[in-house]
Design a protein around this nucleic acid. Sequence first.
DNA 1: ATAAAAACTTGTCGCGCGTAAATAAATAAT
DNA 2: ATTATTTATTTACGCGCGACAAGTTTTTAT
Lengths: 341, 341
Amino acid sequence: MVGAKIKNMEEFAAVSGISRPTVSKYFNDPESVRASTRERIEQALKTYDYRPNIYAMNQNRKLTKNIGIVVPYLADPVFAELARSLEQRCLDAGYRPTLYSSHGVQSHENDILDSLRSLKPTGVLLAALGRASDKRVIEKFCADVPTVLFDSNVEDLGLAFVGSDNPQFSNLIVDYLCRTGEPPSFFEMKSPPNPNANKRRMGYIAGMEKMGFTPQIIQAEGEGWGIEEIGLREGYKALEQGAFATNTVLCSNDRLAIGFLSACYERNLRVGRGADASIRVAGQDDHPFSRFTCPALTTIAQDYESISRETMQRLFQLIEGESQERTATFLEGKLVMRESA
Amino acid sequence: MVGAKIKNMEEFAAVSGISRPTVSKYFNDPESVRASTRERIEQALKTYDYRPNIYAMNQNRKLTKNIGIVVPYLADPVFAELARSLEQRCLDAGYRPTLYSSHGVQSHENDILDSLRSLKPTGVLLAALGRASDKRVIEKFCADVPTVLFDSNVEDLGLAFVGSDNPQFSNLIVDYLCRTGEPPSFFEMKSPPNPNANKRRMGYIAGMEKMGFTPQIIQAEGEGWGIEEIGLREGYKALEQGAFATNTVLCSNDRLAIGFLSACYERNLRVGRGADASIRVAGQDDHPFSRFTCPALTTIAQDYESISRETMQRLFQLIEGESQERTATFLEGKLVMRESA
DNA sequence: ATAAAAACTTGTCGCGCGTAAATAAATAAT
DNA sequence: ATTATTTATTTACGCGCGACAAGTTTTTAT
């Protein structure tokens, strides 16, 4: 990092002894120039601290190497984990990821897509709000920008979806719970913010019927992303009213389960599968904190790695123009047995 | 949104009947043009869907209206909450915030600052890794870009710091715990990733001495941001060895406390302040999930709103060139009494 | 050694906007 | 109405790069 300050690519080309167009070619794809040329440029890069002006670069280019990652709620550790994983993959592939959170609000989601549009991104990875999304806005956006929807499959919008096989989740855990004790009741939000909830309810019903049991669904009042709070408040009410037909409760997701466990604690119910326990509780997602609830939460683990891998893979296919028909990828979850059920 | 597609500002100026330089002026600051002119532009904006090319805009401008927000670990809900709040304030002030997470890794933090530099941001809000940060890199960055450090005060780097008054946190809760029961032992990580931990230890020691008790510090082995895991594993060990001198444990932060509560549960210890409880546990931060632990966690609440407000305020002062000497703002926390202590 | 292909050079244009200076018009003050 | 002041217009240039064409050199294949 010695040498005079380099102002632009012209000057940098001069000091590295290479012509500017070739240097430009290098920055767009280092592999596209001869090894010996690459060597000389990278040598110069070490002594003269130069970086192309990102704004000038993107002004003319069609492909900006930007990738937008949008999640509905970043304070939800499930999305934080997905976002982290996707971000890393973008960086590894040589792209510039930018992270956005809709914070559960439709107008924010719309604003993000709007602002994303002017960034001319190569592609966008979008976990939409779901029920609260403005479908027309998303549809219009998908038509303009190569977009892979992940986690929440909004009315089959866009050219690709990657997410969990939610019916399988519920099916799997219903099977486990029935085989190891009483059949579960299903505890969910009446108006869940995330569309996966509906698939899980269907999976629960199908699973119960397959096992020859009658499904029982308890719905919690309350709106929004304060899910633990709803699980606690409404779970407490349900317990108070003796609403659950059996001693086993399957929650629609781990955050609801975390709230429900609090409710059990406050009502002095011992949760677990031991003889001394009076109720079994299970969740779905394998939320990063599920391991640390009291007792540790039995759940179905989302395959975060596969979701992120498949999401990126589909995006690259879209970018490269392959396979223009709509695809939907559903990844299976694995049972994580812990103490709560 | 009818009318032909508008390609650039030239065309938009034509259809709105205003000259291009004036339109340019409008987009840089709508208030800078006469009300009647503004009216005409905004009218045209409604019928013709035009937005200035963001790359061409930023190419020449010195002030890009970009603000970078960097946190050490976005999957930590405490930082997710801070980031959310800061992001909103930036948007409200008419800036374009961009969110980055270092994921606890020094090289990532350095890469982020590097990439941030080429975005020519108006300012940066940086919660540094702390112990794992490359101080020279951060110092150099602060010299080039107006930067406000928040949450973690790294060796008095940069021109401004805003964060919690960590000694006061520990002091306050030590006082509370001593007045309501046995004096607390202090449970912390031996090598905490966040520098606030040291301040809290000092606050604990000072608080204990003020009350006339002898401090006792238990340090957990383990590195990194898997804090709950460490709290669980090392807390379990410490309980097994009877390491705590009293029945009261103050954890350095809520995430450690969440892990420690799990350890208590696994050892069948009833946590709380009731007569039937055998141990009291407290944390510090008011982590978003503290309300939902079993039992709910007594803690000291960070004043997230004030931190975010003060952080932004200091940034604007720096941008506007006021007060070039270094300032440090320390905000007090409030006691949140719940069932665990 | 020769031909063909690949990589590089030189030169030139244009992208969409910021910005500045000189001029003209609109508003405000007298 | 006249002058002073603010605001808009016209004209012109430059930013740093991508993209392209035509010519030159280097590498690879025959």
